[in-house]
């Protein structure tokens, strides 16, 4: 049976792409952010995942308001990164894993998740950049991936509670996969930031820290809040922490914290990073 090796949660911001393209990793502005990743690389070398399931949110590349899914799961042989409107160089295509995709889709629909399935799907910076941060030295992402996209564009968004349940069911689905492979779960988004409105630039390190702690000790803590309350506490885009909630929930039982980092700011964002393993 397949085994989940752990979960990595990280922020995503288009500016990371510019920093990578410009080789600014050691620039004083960027160094505290990029310095978070070598321990993650060491952990990946140790656990050697065969495939990654990536929870992320689309920023208006693949989905528009004519067909806006709450939860979308990719089932394509390959996922292309594409121009999001600002002409940043795109990353090479990501290999898919249709067999795992369909297993996950079958299991989640059987568990009453009303998925949208995507046999063709463009993936944006929320997908490409975290994978590049995890495997910076590989020209192409070395593991095949399965995208799971959560709507954070148009309300009503799924509640933290629903995302927790999604993650839990996803973990069960992976665990029931009849293949002797090691699966990594990735959640990208957040932490506190707000791009739009008079409150633009809002961050909330106290809440972020409490949230990161809760993922280890009490992962359902955040499900007490409505999305509007999460926006109040973390900013309009802080609600992207929903991907962290689902990724953590995919790990069965208690977890150990392998590594974490937290830094403000990258661009307008409070950048968080966590690596969690299933407790022995």
């Amino acid at each position: 049976m397949a085994k989940i090796v752990g979960a990595i949660t990280t922020s995503h911001v288009p500016a990371i792409g510019r920093a990578i393209a410009g080789k600014l990793q050691d620039d004083p502005y960027w160094k505290p952010f990029f310095d978070g990743f070598p321990p993650v690389h060491a952990w990946l070398d140790k656990v050697r995942p065969d495939v990654a399931v990536v929870l992320y949110n689309d920023h208006g590349l693949n989905f528009f308001l004519d067909k806006m899914p709450t939860f979308a799961v990719g089932a394509a042989p390959e996922y292309h990164n594409a121009d999001e409107g600002w002409g940043i160089p795109t990353l090479p295509p990501f290999k898919g894993h249709p067999e795992l995709s369909w297993h996950v889709i079958n299991e989640l629909v059987a568990r009453e998740f009303d998925l949208t399935t995507c046999q063709e799907m463009l993936v944006d910076h929320a997908y490409s950049l975290p994978l590049k941060l995890l495997w910076p030295n590989d020209e192409k992402c070395p593991v095949p991936t399965v995208p799971v996209c959560i709507n954070t564009v148009q309300y009503p968004l799924p509640s933290a509670k629903r995302c927790y349940k999604l993650g839990k069911a996803l973990g069960e689905a992976i665990g029931s996969w009849d293949k002797d492979l090691r699966v990594l779960v990735i959640g990208t988004g957040g932490l506190s930031h707000q791009l739009d409105g008079e409150r633009a630039g809002f961050v909330n390190p106290e809440f972020d820290k409490a949230f990161m702690d809760s993922l280890v000790s009490d992962p359902e803590w955040v499900t007490q809040f409505s999305n509007e309350q999460i926006v109040e506490k973390t900013g309009t885009q802080g609600v992207e922490l929903l991907m962290w909630v689902a990724a953590r929930a995919a790990l069965p039982g208690r977890v150990g914290l392998v590594h974490s980092n937290y830094h403000i700011p990258i661009s307008n964002t409070a950048a968080g990073l966590m690596v969690m393993e299933v407790a022995a």
């Binding site: 920023h59 308001l65 999001e84 002409g87 739009d196 008079e198 633009a200 885009q237 307008n268």
Partner: peptide, 23 residues
Amino acid sequence: NVYYLAKFAGILGLDVQDLGAAQ
């Protein structure tokens, strides 16, 4: 919606910090 408006900002050569300042 900010996710779509960001693409308009791209045309103008503005980043999210320009937008933050403007707002």
